[in-house]
Design a protein around this nucleic acid. Structure first.
Lengths: 245, 245
DNA sequence: CGACTTTTTGACCTAATTCAACTAATGTGG
DNA sequence: CCACATTAGTTGAATTAGGTCAAAAAGTCG
């Protein structure tokens, strides 16, 4: 799965073989990180750029009263902090949610990309715009949808994103998060996440078990959630679930 | 107020006199736009870059069920869509909320900035990072805070942002939005916004009247809302309320 | 003034929270 | 491999924050 991020960039821009090889060669130091470890913490002065190779991580922030909001899931192929390096001080934290393999790149690599690889630079640009669009969609999600719709919408999004990096088998993909973490992303209590999941399961819309999400009928779930993938700006028809193997 | 945006950029980076003059000369066509007009609509292929000179505008999107979520307020000095031009298709809309004066710049101007004015380019970069951080804070706000805290937090943020462009008088500033629009930004019903405002007013924390927000004791409101302005990444101590005149 | 929009209030309802207990997993050291 | 500890998931009962519906009051504007 080391090349999930090449795959991801390719879903936004046409890359040359040279670009691809060059990207491949970028990956220097790789760390295995256990779950619930902060990669960067609020207040830190960011030094490295992190790229998730395997596992799930998340951006988050805590309120003064100790409540946590998760802002984004970072899945294989996602850069954690390309841009943030421009600011002196991290305004949020990033933590692993499952065991992760993380590549650490030096900021100079990124600068090299922007200066020497226009196609790649553009692809990175687009990535960050998509991240922002995704963030907007999450705000829409917690601001305007019911508990069940929120969860269903999140799962639809994740299915599309996981498929784009070749990590789905039909309607199913790995999802190693706890219901508590789901609650922190949807703005719901654990208890209510549990009850909502039960209802979704009983309606035959989604099942979450063995650290996997199983969607028997993706179209049906999309309809239920009011999911429109336009905001993910994937180009062309996404690869079909099975063709990714 | 034509130079609110110069002021804004200066709160992120040191600009030379030349930069300032050049920025001033940028403003070409200026439109007066009445309230509730879309500047760009979801699905459009963005052509112009809009800069708000006066008034309030907002990014927003509707759900399939006709609910609206507002993602950001655009106040004098804010660029609406510097970056979005990179994508083929708008994934959200931008509308005026009050009468606005809007400068329309050609995308080529932006390209010129990035190529010829490194200090400005950097300042624009930082602006968009701050926009993203603000969006995260809004998600935290609707996901984790109570109705009153949400509203109070939003007002604190707005106070800081308005002050940064010289549009406050002590704890007071123009705020020409309806309670319905406040509801669409905080994920609350109009009725509940109204009741929450009443409680905040009775607690002596904020008053909203005559299209203005009046905060008798800014520090007290910040404490109540759990507001920490770090995410706005303003450099140095902000100008004091009265020194802006 | 009269039409329309926005704000305010009341009464009632419901989605989601909280607290608490219990069960099912997962993990750890002997 | 088992006994015990710990974390995660499930369920029930009581409570509450916030939503809905409806109608009145207060502004706004041609």
């Amino acid at each position: 799965m080391e090349n999930a991020f090449i795959r991801k960039l390719e879903s936004f821009a046409q890359l040359s073989d040279e670009d691809r090889q060059w990207l491949q060669s970028l990956i220097g130091r790789v760390n295995d990180v256990s779950p619930d470890q902060d990669l960067i913490r609020e207040g830190d002065n960011p030094e490295n750029v992190h790229l998730i190779l395997e596992g799930f991580a998340a951006r988050y922030k805590m309120t003064a009263n100790g409540k946590r909001q998760i802002f984004a899931y970072l899945i294989p192929g996602d850069f954690c902090d390309v841009h943030v390096a421009l600011l002196r001080r991290m305004d949020h934290s990033i933590a692993t949610l499952s065991p992760c393999r993380v590549a650490m790149l030096s900021p100079s690599t990124i600068i090299e990309i922007t200066e020497r690889r226009p196609a790649l630079a553009r692809a990175l640009w687009v990535c960050s715009l998509v991240d922002e669009a995704t963030l907007r969609e999450w705000l829409l999600n917690v601001g305007q949808r019911s508990a069940r719709e929120r969860i269903a919408h999140l799962f639809c999004e994740l299915h599309v994103r996981m498929r784009a990096v070749g990590l789905t088998t039909d309607g199913s993909f790995e999802f190693p998060l706890t219901q508590e973490e789901l609650g922190d992303t949807t703005g719901l209590s654990v208890v209510h996440v549990n009850r909502s999941l039960k209802q979704l399961r009983e309606a035959g819309l989604v099942t979450m078990r063995n650290e996997r999400i199983i969607i028997p009928d993706v179209e049906r779930l999309k309809t239920f959630a009011g999911f429109d993938p336009a905001y993910l700006h994937l180009r062309g028809p996404a690869p079909t679930a099975t063709s990714t193997f």
